[in-house]
Design a protein around this nucleic acid. Sequence first.
DNA 1: ACAAGAAACTTTATCTCTGAAGTCTTCAGG
DNA 2: CCTGAAGACTTCAGAGATAAAGTTTCTTGT
Lengths: 186, 186
Amino acid sequence: MTAAAGSPGAPQELDLDEQIAAYQREFPEVDPQVEKVVTALGRLNRRMNVAYGRQLVDLGISNSEWEVLKALVVVGRPYRLGPGDLAKRLGLTPAAMTHRIDRMVAEGLVTRDRDEANRVRVIVELTDEGREKWLQTMRLAAAFEDELLQDLTPVERAALGEILTRLLRRVESSQPDAGGRLEDLD
Amino acid sequence: MTAAAGSPGAPQELDLDEQIAAYQREFPEVDPQVEKVVTALGRLNRRMNVAYGRQLVDLGISNSEWEVLKALVVVGRPYRLGPGDLAKRLGLTPAAMTHRIDRMVAEGLVTRDRDEANRVRVIVELTDEGREKWLQTMRLAAAFEDELLQDLTPVERAALGEILTRLLRRVESSQPDAGGRLEDLD
DNA sequence: ACAAGAAACTTTATCTCTGAAGTCTTCAGG
DNA sequence: CCTGAAGACTTCAGAGATAAAGTTTCTTGT
């Protein structure tokens, strides 16, 4: 196993500090402190989604379906929203919502009915089974999150929450949802 | 425009605190402080990706392509990596990398050649044009990031960086890349 | 009333990613 | 030297997303 030219043995993923160092080397104007925060945020998020994804597999639903469940639960009883509204909240096109709902109806997580008061509209409603699934995901997610933050002191947690909230307010105000959908990931 | 049954006028997206309140209502066991941190993290990330995405459109490349450029630049000169290695770093299947590289070669951002020392391997190398693109994206990204963090005092920035790093270390150690690819988004 | 116009979903075509199968190269024995 | 096994990439079929066009159902001006 000589590994002649290409790359040696274990190139996997760079350590955070190494990556910051690389950025400084390739783009000296960068502020390392800023870059560190931003990079850590991105990586953290990715890892968290991996963790959620694994738990969801165990429960037999996909990340996409989880998003829909969350949106419906958050609006509260009677857990109803239209496809267009859901699409907007999840940052998808209405077309994608149509298909997602198709699948979720087939699995019994939600129902889809025409709104008889205004037949242009459609109402997607969480079923008891869907709500139960959400509760299960919530229990797992909360356990993971508690573990993730266990190293932080209460003071640190509060500070972190406050700072993140402030950052969020800044982006949300400079990006007033204007365009409509929130593109990209989640 | 009376809006009879369904939903009133502007359901768009819930405010952060409202969403936390909704979680507490629907799942009382949840720790609001934890949930606030986690939710803010997720939203922040989404917004940042939206912002990056817009800048990338202006520069005429996609988010996917940007990821590849970043990976190549981070390894340093001569900016070379194999498709499999790239796939691992970006959390994609090798198949997806093949297609991505196809596109990027066609656009002149990278080259793809067989490694003559070990003809099983393929070498993807950044072109000057690709490097230039990366520099442009970096300038825009850095400007956005500086603006995002402008409200924070130097002390806060340092604290934020330190805390996030700590969290990241925790997840990365409990998720040792083991399975191989890092599923999901980015 | 009636026709033009707007709204809210759905359908269709195309693109990108995943998972599995396939191809080509290198290495280790016999 | 030849054969089997392993490794690295590519190809192929299927799932899910986007964009644009299409349907159906209100709404509004005359």
